[in-house]
Every structure is written in C-alpha cells, then in structure tokens.
C-alpha cells in the first residue's frame, strides 16, 4: 500500500512536469516557432510606444531575454527552491513553492492561487453535495420505476440539464434569485467570515452547477441501478427476506454507486482546477477566473500556476478515486 502510493506519487510528479512543459510549449514555444519575437512578447507588458531600451529592460526583468529552456528551468526551480524577484527599489524573495510573478500585474502567483482555492473549493464542494445527492436520488427512483411518469419527466429534465449551457442557467438563476426575488446575496463572502452569508451567496451557483452535473449523475445512477437490480445478488438479498428498501440501498445502490465514485472524484478534481464558466457568470474570484485573466493577458506565470494546480487536483483526485475504489470494492487490489 505504502509503496503503491509512493509509486503513484512519483508518477504524478513526472506527469505534472510534462503538463507544465506542454503548457509552456503551447503558450510560449508555439508562438515563438510561429515567428513571435521576445520583443513582441515583452511589448505586450509595456504601456505604449516603448523605446528599444524599455523593451530591453522589461525583457530582462521578466527573464524573456533568456533561451526558452532556461525560462522553463527557472520556473520549475522556483517551485522547488523559491526565487528572487526585482520589485524596483528592492528585491523580494519568493519562498518555495514559488510560481513566479505575473508578467502583467507583477503580483506573486502563489498567494493569488491560495487565496482563490477556498472560493473554488466552496463552489465545487457545495455543488458536488447537491448534485451527488439529487442525482443519485433521482437516478434510483427512476431506475426502480423505469418508464414511469417520474422516470420520463426527470430523465427529460436531466437531458435539458446537460444540454443547457451555464451561461443560460447561471444567468437565469442570477436574474431570478438575486434581482427578481432578491433572496440570495451577490458578493462572495468567505466561509470564515460569515457561513450563512457564504452559503446564501453561493447557493444559486451551486444549484446551476449542480443542475448540469446532477443530470449526468441521475442518468449514470439510473443505468447503474437498472443493471444492478437485475443482478443475481439482488435476488439473493430478496430471498433472505430483506425489506425492499434495504435491498435497494444496501445491495443495489451500494454496488451501483462504486463506479459513480470514480466519475465523481474526477469531476470534483477537474472542477477544483477552476470552474471557469461558473466563476465568470457568478463573478466568483476563484481559480477559473484567474486562469481566464491569465490567458487574456497572455500571462505565463498565472497560466502555468493554474495549470499545475489543476493538474495536481486531477492527479490527487485520481489517486483518491483509486484508493476509494479499492476500499469500496474488495475485489480490486492495488499493486
């Protein structure tokens, strides 16, 4: 078990390195290959009509005058060992893990990420609870009464939920519940400040996001339950004289839920890397919003930082899913 985790961790580190290298290549190597010069890049971070000296100064300060492999190396080194940055009158040391400073705003990336994680986490966790519970409940009921009115209605709603874009549901939720009937708050409040207000503000975002996902989970649960409820062991459970409720929950759902855990873990991991559209629609200062900003500004350090963090979440989620799966299904052995 320990050696399994160690091996997985090692693989994860390699994977993260590859992810950063690919991200780096997409945003910096490709434009370079397409003919963009370091001068042109530097110019994006200067106000207007820069002199040659301005460009050279910015280039040097951002490290853009170095060869690409050196820039990449410095980034990786910063994460492991920290780095020193020029603030102007003084220099600042940025402790490991140092994800560098934004080219555009010159803000350190790491504090930005850490201050945004709680927001994205709040969004993801709340929505996840909602969609998991509602998706599974709807899926189970639908599976127990296939082709019933309930089943058809909810599967129809589920289809709509998957198809409707967040732009639509999110905006509608905002319009209805923060303006038409101002039940919910508009500005994100940290949990530590005021838990009630926190939940109150996030609720429309949770619901919108949960609608999208619970639709998927309802369908997943439904098909899983339909399959499981036809299994021989369900017949056995009934033959024991168990109440149908216990047959469904202890035996049917227990087996049908296991594959859902896998999907759930991955979805949650992905979401923690930034719910880009939801955060944009609901103006939540999370990771996704930061990523959008970085991409808009062609700002390498934030982009790399978010990518790395997102990849890290996915990797961790993956590992947890595998461990959970092993815990849930005794037939699975980790090796």
């Amino acid at each position: 078990m320990i050696s399994y985790i160690l091996r997985r961790t090692f693989a994860a580190v390699i994977l993260l390195l590859v992810v950063t290298a690919v991200t780096f290549a997409i945003f910096f190597l490709l434009p370079r290959l397409a003919g963009q010069t370091a001068d042109q890049l530097a110019q994006q971070y200067i106000g207007k009509s820069p002199t040659k000296a301005d460009i050279a100064a910015v280039k040097q300060n951002l490290g853009l005058d170095e060869p690409l492999y050196a820039q990449y190396w410095h980034f990786i080194k910063g994460i492991v060992a920290g780095a020193t940055y020029n603030l102007g009158p003084t220099t600042a040391h940025c402790d490991a893990p140092c994800f560098g400073y934004s080219f555009k705003t010159h803000e350190a990336v790491w504090p930005q990420l850490t201050s945004r994680i709680p927001v994205t986490f709040s969004l993801a966790a709340g929505a996840a609870v909602l969609w998991l519970v509602s998706g599974v409940v709807i899926g189970v009921i639908s599976a127990l009464k296939p082709r019933s009115f309930f089943d058809r209605t909810f599967m129809g709603v589920a289809l709509a939920g998957v198809s409707l874009p967040m732009f639509f549901t999110g905006s509608l939720a905002i319009l209805l519940f923060t303006y038409q009937w101002p039940i919910f708050g508009r500005t994100y409040v940290p949990f530590t400040e005021n838990p009630a207000q926190w939940a109150n503000t996030l609720f429309p975002a949770w619901c919108s996001l949960a609608l999208l996902y619970s639709a998927i989970y309802a369908r997943l649960t439904r098909s899983g339950m339909l399959e499981t409820m036809n299994e021989d062991f369900i017949r056995t459970a009934r033959a024991k004289g168990l109440r149908e409720r216990n047959v469904v929950t202890r035996h049917g759902l227990r087996a049908a839920l296991t594959p859902i855990i896998t999907v759930f873990g991955m979805d949650l991991g992905l979401l923690l890397g930034g719910a880009v559209i939801t955060e944009t629609v609901f103006s939540l200062p999370g990771i996704g919003q930061y990523a959008v900003q970085g991409i808009t500004d062609n700002d390498l350090p934030p982009i790399l930082g978010v990518t790395l963090l997102a990849a890290l979440f996915v990797v961790i989620a993956n590992l947890l899913v595998d461990l959970l799966y092993a815990a849930a299904d005794p037939r699975v052995r980790l090796s």
């Binding site: 971070y45 200067i46 106000g47 207007k48 002199t51 000296a53 100064a57 300060n61 102007g88 010159h106």
Partner: peptide
C-alpha cells in the same frame, strides 16, 4: 523611467524631458 518594473503607463515624460532617454 523605471520601465523594467513599472511599464504599464505611458512614457511621455521620457520622450519630452531633457536627458529623458
């Protein structure tokens, strides 16, 4: 004039002041 770190504003003074370059 500290264009390496504060580069986002305009630089008219650099252009117009004596010895600005």
């Amino acid at each position: 004039f500290a264009r390496d770190v504060l580069s986002l504003g305009p630089n008219y003074f650099q252009q117009f002041m004596q010895g600005g370059k």
